[in-house]
Structures are given as C-alpha cells and as structure tokens.
Amino acid sequence: MFLFQMIIPAFLVGGVICVIGQLLMDLTKPSFTPAHVLVTFVTGGAILGALGWYKPLIEIGGAGASVPLSGFGYSLAKGAMDAVSREGLMGALSGGVAATAVGIAAAVLFGYLVSIAFNPKG
C-alpha cells in the first residue's frame, strides 16, 4: 500500500522530535512558553539544515522531520542556500522566504479566514 509508505518512520521521528520539545518545556523555567519552543525549533532546524544534519532526518523520517516546525526552519535554510548557488548573494535574502512561501501564505490565509469565521469558545 503506497498510502502507508514511510508512516512508521514518520511516526517515530516525529514523536521523538516532539518529546525533545516537551523536555524543553518541562525542564526549563516556566517562562519558556510554547512561543519560545516554536522559535527554538525553527531556528534550530535552520541551523541543523545549514550544517547538513537535518537532511538525513528528512530522508529517514519523511513527514516526521518535515511536519515539525524544525522542518520549516530546514526549508528556510535550504531555500537560502539553494538560491545562493543559483543567483549569488541576493539569493540569501530571497531564497528562504521563496522556498516556504506556500506555508507562510497558507498560514496567513487560513489563519485569517478561521479567525473571521469562528468565535473563541473560552
């Protein structure tokens, strides 16, 4: 079944990445909020991507590595490096955002639509 290809590695790798996030939340000071976790993961993913350490994770875990926010960081860094290879220095500015434009635009669009359509439940 092609539909279920890679789902066990995705489950395991994704689960482990989330456990790292949980440890960050539980073992640090209480002022380390979910916002700090997200920023840490996106920055960490970008740095690991630049060092070439995140790509193997994507190859092993598929969505398990690309769905966590560290995967977004990896795409940003990879986009910037690829664009530098193609276009030179200006690529450093354009590449990250270009590679992740779909995600960013989807987040803004769906975020806006849902906020308009629903009311908070409390």
Binding site: M25, T33, P34, P120, K121, G122
Partner: peptide, 18 residues
Amino acid sequence: HHDSAERQYRLPTEQGSQ
C-alpha cells in the same frame, strides 16, 4: 472572569498548551 483574565495575563484560551 476566567476568559478575560486568561487573555490579559496568560495565553489565548484557544491555544493548545499545558
């Protein structure tokens, strides 16, 4: 009021966090 206090002092009520 739980909901007015939460959003002033802490996090939005719909945010999934512990």
